[in-house]
């Protein structure tokens, strides 16, 4: 039926021999959440940067199909095209919200920046949209003029999500979105994310080392080790019936609280 919106074939980026991301192939389908799990240094974040065009691969091909069915070859696109895609089609949610927010600009300005970046020039509309999105991520809209610096960690992360989703991107990349948050805030954030992803029908590539997050959010899972994908499949399948020795260890390492 439909085509994958992002197709990667043999994507390689080596920082040193054997380090980085080695010959990874994957597809991201419309509306699905693809989880990437693996240990530190296994190339998860590198893969995410490659997929989102923040870094270009040494070899391999990357193809993206945007909302107008235009096919982009991300490896040969110009920097200006990649930045355009980054503003319109992609969303990038950093682990540390301080990397993804402008801390000296009010929450409303943070959400409005992407709108203004794609040419919105009506103050009233921008503000209404910002209020709507604050409510959407469960931040009190009366805090629209507060700077993110005075927000709690969980609120900053939710603001970062609102700021990315305001232009309705087709594909959102998340790098450990729940890292550094306490468990109850994590749960709330995951609820919000799950709802938004479902409602908007966006595709998500999420990098995490938290198996709980992966099980809750991801439809499909890739397991990475030493820069390569060693196992992939439906999340429940991978987590309930792991084949690779490393995946078995990984699953066994989840704390069972009974």
């Amino acid at each position: 039926m439909r085509e994958p919106i992002l197709t990667a074939r043999d994507v390689t980026r080596e920082y040193a021999p054997g380090q980085g991301c080695l010959g990874v192939s994957l597809d991201v389908w419309p509306g699905e959440v693809l989880g990437i799990v693996g240990e530190s240094g296994s190339g998860k974040s590198t893969l995410l940067r490659l997929l989102s065009g923040q870094e270009s691969p040494d070899s391999g091909t990357l193809q993206f199909i945007d909302r107008h069915q235009t096919v982009w070859d991300l490896c040969s696109s110009s920097e200006s095209d990649l930045r355009y895609l980054g503003r319109t089609e992609f969303g990038i949610i950093h682990q540390n919200p301080r990397d993804g927010l402008r801390l000296r600009i009010s929450a409303g300005g943070n959400i409005g920046e992407r709108l203004m970046g794609v040419g919105e020039r009506h103050y009233g509309d921008i503000r209404a949209e910002a209020e709507k999105w604050l409510a959407e991520v469960e931040i009190d809209p009366s805090r629209i003029d507060d700077r993110p610096a005075v927000f709690s960690g969980g609120m900053q992360q939710r603001l970062q999500i609102a700021r990315n989703l305001v232009t309705h991107p087709k594909l959102v990349f998340m790098d450990e979105p729940t890292g550094g948050l306490d468990v109850s805030v994590q749960a709330k954030l995951l609820d919000t994310l799950k709802r938004l992803v479902h409602d908007l029908g966006i595709s998500v590539v999420i990098v995490t080392h938290d198996m709980g997050v992966a099980r809750l959010l991801a439809d499909r899972l890739l397991v990475m080790k030493s820069g390569q994908v060693i196992e992939s499949g439906l999340t429940d399948q991978v987590l309930d019936d792991p084949h690779a020795a490393y995946t078995q260890q990984l699953v066994a390492s989840i704390l069972q609280v009974n």
């Binding site: 930045r83 600009i105 409303g108 300005g109 920046e113 992407r114 203004m116 970046g117 921008i126």
Partner: peptide, 19 residues
């Protein structure tokens, strides 16, 4: 400047009106 990415200029004006 090279890529005409001037959306942020309006962020400053937005902040003015908001404040």
């Amino acid at each position: 400047h090279a890529l005409s990415e001037y959306g942020v200029m309006h962020v400053k004006l937005y902040e003015d009106i908001a404040q």
